[in-house]
Design a binder for these strands. Structure first.
Lengths: 220, 220
DNA sequence: ACGCTTCGTGAGAACTTCGTGAGAGATCGC
DNA sequence: GCGATCTCTCACGAAGTTCTCACGAAGCGT
C-alpha cells in the first residue's frame, strides 16, 4: 500500500501500525511524490491525506482518475464536514476516514477495499527492467516488447521465477520439455541463445549468464 | 439498491431521499426478507441495518458471503464503537456508516461502491474503438455497425471481457461451445477469421491477434 | 601453452499451427 | 415448405516454430 501524508509523525505511526497488520507500506510525503510513486511501485491500494502543501490530496485523486488509474483510494482527512466527505467520494475516493482515526478501523477498511481487488494483474513477474505477463503472453525489457515464441516465453518465465538461481540443463529440460533428458542434443542452448538475442536487441547488458559446467542464471 | 431496516420510519425517509438521488430502491423489513430479496431482485448494492429482530444484519452478511454472493454492502448502524465497525468490515461489509447519518454521505458512499461494481454480463462493454451492447445484440467499431451473427457476437463478447488476456482454444471452445474439446476440428479459427473480416472491414488495424501455439488476444 | 571440454550460433530440415475457401448440414423466419 | 442465413467440417497451402547438427570459439585444468 502507498501511504501519502506530509506529516512525518503520522507517516511513522501509520507505517509501524500497518506493517504490524501485515501491510507492505511505501510512503510519499506529498502530492507530487505520490503521483510518481503510483507509477513506480504500482501499489494495490492508497491511503491519501488531503491537506498537503505541494499538491492537494483531492487534486492528486483527480489527476489519477483522469489518467485512468483505478487503484482504490482511501482518503484520510481532518476535514470532517459532510460536504467534505461527499466531495472526496465524488472525486473518486473509495472511502473517507476522518482524523483522528483508529488504526484498526483504517486497517479494516483497507482490507475491505483490497477484498474487491483480487484479480489485479495476474501474477505478473518483474525482475530488473524485465517484465513478463503470463495472462497476456507478453514480455518486455525496458518497455520494448520482446516478441517471444512459446518456448522462449516458457524459458524466460522459468528464469524470472528463479532470479539469481542457477538452473542446470536437466532442470531446464524437465521443466520446459517435460521429462526425458537425452544428453545427445541440446535445444536448451539454442533457445538460451534466441532469448539472449531478443533480450539484448536494444543494446542492454546481458542478464542471462552462463555458468560453465553447470547451467544458466538470470541476474539483474 | 436494496434497503434493509426494520424501522419503517427510517425506511421511508431513506427511500424518499435516495430516490431523489436517482436510486431505484427496493425495501426489506428484516433479515429473512432481505435474503429473499437479494435472490429475487438481484440488487446492485445493499444498505444494511445491523439491529433487526428476526435475523441480525451481521448474520445476513455472513450468509450472503458464504453463499458466494459478492454484491457490495454498506452497513448502517447505531453501534458506533471502533470494534463494531471493524467487525462489520471484517465480516464482508464494504463500508460502514454510523447513525445518525447524512443522506448525502450515504448516497456518495453508495455511488463509490457502485463505481467499483464488477461488470455484469448484461453490461455494455467498450474497449478502444469497439463497443458491444449485449442487451441490444449490437456491436460497433469506430461507429460502424458490425452485423454479427450469434457465434461471432459471443466470441467478440468474450474477448471484450478479457482484453489483453490470451484465450486458448480450450477456453474459447468451452465458453462458446460448452464442454468437450475435440482437437479434430476447429470452428474457433473459422470464427476468429469471420470476426477479423468484419472488424477490419473499415480498414482499421488488427486487434484480434493470434499468439502462435497458444490462442488469440484482443489488444487495442 | 596445450588439449579437452563446454558453449554459441548459423543453416536448414522437419514439424506444427494457422488462415481460408468451398460446400454440406442445420436452423430459422415467412 | 422453401429460401436465406448461419454454423460447422474439411482440406490444403502458407507461415512460423522447434530441433538437429556441425563447427568454431571460449573456458579450464595441468
Amino acid at each position: 500500500m502507498l501511504l501519502v501524508d506530509d506529516d512525518a509523525a503520522i507517516r511513522r505511526t501509520l507505517t509501524v501500525g500497518l506493517e504490524l497488520e501485515g501491510f507492505d507500506v511505501v510512503c510519499a510525503s506529498g502530492g507530487r511524490p505520490a503521483l510518481e510513486a503510483v507509477g513506480a511501485v504500482r501499489p494495490a491500494v492508497m491511503l491519501l491525506d488531503l491537506t498537503m502543501p505541494d499538491l492537494d490530496g483531492l487534486e492528486v485523486l483527480r489527476r489519477l482518475r483522469v489518467a485512468g488509474e483505478d487503484l482504490p483510494v482511501c482518503v484520510l482527512s481532518a476535514r470532517d464536514q459532510v460536504a467534505d466527505r461527499v466531495q472526496g467520494l465524488e472525486e473518486g475516493a473509495d472511502d473517507y476516514v476522518v482524523k483522528p482515526f483508529a488504526l484498526e478501523e483504517v486497517s479494516a477498511r483497507l482490507h475491505a477495499l483490497l477484498r474487491r481487488r483480487p484479480p489485479r494483474e495476474t501474477d505478473a513477474v518483474v525482475v530488473g527492467d524485465i517484465e513478463l505477463d503470463p495472462a497476456g503472453f507478453s514480455a518486455r525489457r525496458a518497455g520494448r516488447d520482446l516478441e517471444l515464441t512459446r518456448r522462449e516465453f516458457e524459458l524466460l518465465h522459468l528464469f524470472l521465477r528463479n532470479p539469481g538461481v542457477v538452473l542446470d540443463r536437466r532442470r531446464l529440460h524437465e521443466e520446459i520439455w517435460r521429462y526425458t533428458f537425452d544428453p545427445g542434443t541440446n535445444p536448451t542452448d539454442v533457445f538460451v541463445g534466441y532469448l539472449r538475442r531478443k533480450l539484448e536487441a536494444g543494446g542492454e547488458p546481458r542478464v542471462l549468464h552462463t555458468v560453465r559446467g553447470v547451467g544458466f542464471v538470470l541476474r539483474a
